[in-house]
Design a protein around this nucleic acid. Structure first.
Lengths: 112, 112
DNA sequence: CCCATGAATAAGATTTGCCTTATATAAGGA
DNA sequence: TCCTTATATAAGGCAAATCTTATTCATGGG
């Protein structure tokens, strides 16, 4: 499911915008599509293809509700992207970096 | 300098690897090139072009040292990428999110 | 000076990714 | 059952990104 790097998936403005919309809560594909269509001027299949990338790469979950597909943010791949960025965090914020290290340690203690 | 979104620049495996190398410390273009050449099997100009993207987008600084160009990580664009990810942080770690909010507040207090 | 080394640029080929149109699949209401 | 709505898939076109080879520019040693 994680064939490509999380940051490769995030390297597209349409996909980022879709995720921003989903961050506000679970939404049917159609609701996402109409916003993206307006903002980027692309077709329904184009949006559907981006939804597919997000789904197949693990950035979202989907569940059917009748004929609709409800998309929602899934955390794992975000965490992966964040972990990569963490390597550089010390360059701009020592305190946050220290905290991240501590929280990571804690996470490992909890679920090893 | 920030014509493209930070995450667009990070959406390339070669550029990410270059940044990882530079995270270990300032390095001349040649040192970066030889590693990337080995790992990805691409030419010197190809690496130079990626260095240009990183430089022009503000992910690195460069300073000449004789005939060499010393590249180093610059924090600003990383911070931007991190800020975007922060919107989603609550999905995987409430505590870190809360902390980030607090730190952001503090930063604003210090340098407005 | 001249040549070697380090790095960037130019120009063109190629590949990758994204978009479009057309079509398929699936669910629900009349 | 038929039609409409919701979404996904297929196939192909096109443009942007990336790579290659060739060349240029700059520095410094001999």
């Amino acid at each position: 499911m994680a064939a490509v790097h999380a940051l490769d998936v995030l390297g597209d403005p349409v996909r980022r915008r879709i995720l921003e919309l989903l961050a506000e809560g679970e939404r049917p594909a159609g609701a996402v599509t109409s916003v993206i269509r307006d903002e980027f001027g692309i077709s329904q299949p184009a949006v559907s293809q981006h939804l597919r990338v997000l789904r197949e790469s693990g950035f979202t979950t989907v569940r059917p509700q009748g004929a609709r597909r409800l998309y929602a943010v899934a955390p794992a791949r975000f965490e992966e992207a964040d972990a990569w960025l963490a390597h550089f965090r010390r360059f701009w914020n020592q305190r946050l970096d220290a905290l991240e290290t501590e929280l990571a340690r804690e996470r490992h203690r909890k679920k090893p």
